[in-house]
Amino acid sequence: MTNHPRHVTIIGGGTMGCGIAGLMAATGSTVTVVEVDQAAAGRVAERVRREWPDDPAALARLETTTNLSRTPPEADLVIEAVAEDAKLKADVLAAAGRVAHHAILATNTSSIAIGRLAQAVHDPDRFLGLHFFNPVAKSALVEIVAGERTAPRTVELAKSWSETWQRHSIVVRDSPGFATSRLGVLLGLEAIRMVEEGVAEPHDIDTAMVLGYRHPIGPLRLTDLVGLDVRLAIAEYLSGELGDRFAPPRLLREKVAAGLMGRKTGQGFYTWTSRAAEER
């Protein structure tokens, strides 16, 4: 294989899928994004353009389809980037494995154990986690998660590709939440509890972490960007796997039930005037 994957298939054209697709295309790969229908597929190019506005060449290397079987047989890498639902991901990965017989198979899950998803994959030695971060265009990290049956050569190839993507890679042993989500979600949940208890306003809590601990973004603003519904799903999964310290706060459940999902709905812990706007 080349220093970068020649062809990459991304399954799922949401925020993360399009961000990853843009990165792959911007670093020289031909990219196919698979979506559920034509309407969703039609939105992919615009989403990628928003993330990578200064790289028209990337769009030229991008195509969309609603048919997973259109994945070229010579594909080097297939990345699953659908919703954070274990059954859905397993179904998608099983289908991808039947189509892409030689590609590295990866999941962009932020929390679900690789070993659990590997059960759906016919050849688990070529399967691993590639956890990218939102927004992909501005993030410098990719978390490589090696399952118990992931071959060392698969991990080494992912590390090599990460260099061509101009991303620093860390390798983490398979465990629910890995390193980044396990720490980041715990911090975010505690910040939500502080709002719930009236300790401080969201902006002040975030400012404390940005200025006091040099975090690039506060945990509540990050929760708005990720999506409160996504945070809730991850917290529910981790609390089931790792215990009550990951139990979702009441305030998080209430906001999700009310449709306050963060930036994508215009309201979360902050008010957003548009998808691209800063919070007020």
Score class of each variant (00 low, 15 high):
residue 104 I to R: 03
residue 126 R to E: 00
residue 223 T to K: 03
residue 52 W to F: 14
residue 204 D to Q: 12
residue 43 R to I: 01
residue 77 L to E: 03
residue 183 L to S: 08
residue 9 T to Y: 04
residue 20 I to P: 03
residue 48 V to Y: 04
residue 169 S to L: 12
residue 128 L to Q: 03
residue 207 T to A: 15
residue 234 I to M: 09
residue 161 W to K: 04
residue 14 G to M: 08
residue 280 R to A: 14
residue 162 S to R: 01
residue 32 T to R: 07
residue 158 A to G: 06
residue 139 S to N: 14
residue 96 A to G: 09
residue 104 I to C: 06
residue 193 R to I: 09
residue 16 M to R: 12
residue 99 V to G: 12
residue 236 E to G: 08
residue 148 E to H: 11
residue 93 L to H: 04
residue 182 R to F: 09
residue 226 V to R: 05
residue 21 A to F: 01
residue 26 A to K: 08
residue 246 F to R: 05
residue 243 G to V: 07
residue 120 A to K: 06
residue 58 A to I: 10
residue 82 V to I: 08
residue 269 F to Y: 15
residue 29 S to M: 00
residue 145 V to C: 06
residue 239 S to R: 14
residue 139 S to P: 02
residue 225 L to T: 05
residue 129 G to H: 01
residue 13 G to W: 06
residue 217 I to G: 09
residue 135 P to T: 07
residue 25 A to I: 01
residue 8 V to G: 07
residue 97 G to R: 04
residue 163 E to S: 10
residue 219 P to I: 14
residue 5 P to K: 13
residue 44 V to H: 03
residue 12 G to A: 08
residue 276 A to V: 08
residue 101 H to I: 12
residue 203 H to L: 14
residue 253 R to I: 10
residue 16 M to L: 15
residue 201 E to F: 12
residue 233 A to N: 14
residue 135 P to I: 01
residue 81 A to I: 02
residue 142 V to Y: 06
residue 76 D to F: 02
residue 117 L to Y: 00
residue 186 L to M: 13
residue 12 G to R: 01
residue 137 A to W: 09
residue 8 V to P: 00
residue 164 T to K: 14
residue 49 R to L: 03
residue 203 H to V: 15
residue 270 Y to K: 05
residue 217 I to R: 15
residue 161 W to V: 09
residue 87 K to G: 03
residue 166 Q to P: 03
residue 103 A to C: 12
residue 103 A to P: 03
residue 254 E to M: 00
residue 261 M to H: 13
residue 131 H to I: 09
residue 274 S to F: 01
residue 179 A to W: 10
residue 264 K to T: 02
residue 196 E to I: 06
residue 242 L to H: 08
residue 222 L to N: 07
residue 214 R to S: 15
residue 208 A to D: 08
residue 108 N to K: 11
residue 77 L to R: 00
residue 74 E to A: 00
residue 22 G to D: 05
residue 255 K to G: 02
residue 91 D to E: 15
residue 50 R to W: 04
residue 225 L to C: 05
residue 45 A to S: 13
residue 4 H to Q: 11
residue 275 R to V: 06
residue 82 V to R: 10
residue 257 A to Q: 12
residue 133 F to L: 13
residue 141 L to W: 05
residue 67 N to E: 07
residue 66 T to R: 06
residue 259 G to C: 12
residue 180 T to F: 13
residue 186 L to F: 09
residue 231 R to P: 00
residue 200 A to T: 08
residue 151 A to R: 10
residue 187 L to E: 14
residue 242 L to F: 06
residue 27 T to V: 01
residue 148 E to D: 11
residue 151 A to Y: 03
residue 110 S to T: 07
residue 239 S to F: 09
residue 254 E to A: 13
residue 99 V to A: 09
residue 191 A to E: 10
residue 43 R to L: 11
residue 150 T to G: 02
residue 178 F to C: 08
residue 9 T to I: 02
residue 114 I to M: 01
residue 268 G to I: 02
residue 168 H to Q: 15
residue 138 K to I: 13
residue 216 P to T: 13
residue 117 L to K: 01
residue 75 A to V: 01
residue 206 D to Y: 08
residue 196 E to W: 03
residue 107 T to A: 07
residue 174 D to M: 07
residue 120 A to P: 04
residue 227 G to A: 07
residue 225 L to S: 05
residue 176 P to T: 12
residue 60 A to H: 04
residue 211 L to Q: 13
